[in-house]
Simulated scan of single mutants.
Amino acid sequence: MQAISSDATEIFARLKSAAFHELVVSSMAGERDAISTLFTWIQPAIYRYCRSRIGRSGSAYSSADDVAQEICVAVYGALSRYGDEPESFLPFVYGIAAHKVADHYRRAGRDRSDPAADVPDGVDTSASPEQQIMAADLRERLSDLLDTLPPRQREILRLRLIVGLSAQETATAVGLTPTAVRVTQHRALVKLRAALRPNEWI
């Protein structure tokens, strides 16, 4: 399985920091600079989530990115009404994101299980045609692997590995205990590992 990129690791670290919680508090108080920084920090996670749920439209993530924009607007609109602890802000954002993705599928009138496992943070202009083909093959293989999981396991993997929520935050978001989240994640990863071919282990 492909390791999480350094960019994603940096995103996750920011969203776990005390500075992020302070940003949430300041944003709730209506401070413009804090709100601007808050959205700069959460946008990459929102885009990663939407791209993993919706996938590509042809060769682009246009539909996923449109939904991500809708989510950002909805979070901004709801920010003044958010009255929970800063630690619960990311599950709050996830709740909005899940509803917006569901709305997208209702509008599109198609099946909701269309994940795209590889979620690039940007376009890699340095990749050769061969590398681009290999990356596309990897995306398709990872997508096929995720499709073998039950919906709950897929969603928990998205929240833990793509969005970067903690076990507690994921538990809040999906209505489970942190222990149940860890057990579900473990079972999902065991199933994915069992499905890997020998030449796919790295």
Rank of each mutant, 00 (worst) to 15 (best):
D33P: 01
T37H: 09
L38H: 06
F39A: 09
W41Q: 13
I42L: 13
Q43N: 14
Q43D: 13
P44W: 08
I46G: 04
I46N: 07
I46L: 12
Y47S: 12
Y49E: 01
R51N: 03
R51G: 01
S52C: 06
S52P: 00
I54H: 01
R56V: 08
S57I: 08
G58A: 14
S59Y: 09
S59M: 04
A60F: 11
A60Q: 14
Y61W: 10
S63Y: 09
A64C: 07
D65C: 02
D65H: 05
D65S: 07
I71S: 03
C72G: 04
G77V: 03
G77Q: 11
A78R: 14
L79H: 02
R81I: 01
R81A: 09
R81E: 10
G83T: 07
G83C: 06
G83K: 07
D84F: 05
E85C: 03
F92I: 03
V93I: 15
Y94I: 13
G95N: 05
G95R: 10
G95I: 01
A98G: 01
H99C: 07
A102P: 00
A102Q: 05
D103H: 06
D103F: 00
H104V: 02
H104G: 03
Y105R: 08
R106F: 04
R106C: 01
R107D: 10
A108K: 13
D111T: 07
D111H: 09
D111I: 03
S113V: 12
D114C: 08
D118W: 14
V119Q: 13
V123T: 12
V123N: 06
T125P: 00
T125G: 00
A127V: 06
A127F: 13
P129Q: 06
Q131G: 07
Q131N: 05
I133R: 14
I133W: 07
M134K: 12
A136R: 15
D137N: 12
E140R: 11
E140S: 10
E140P: 00
L142A: 07
S143H: 01
D144V: 05
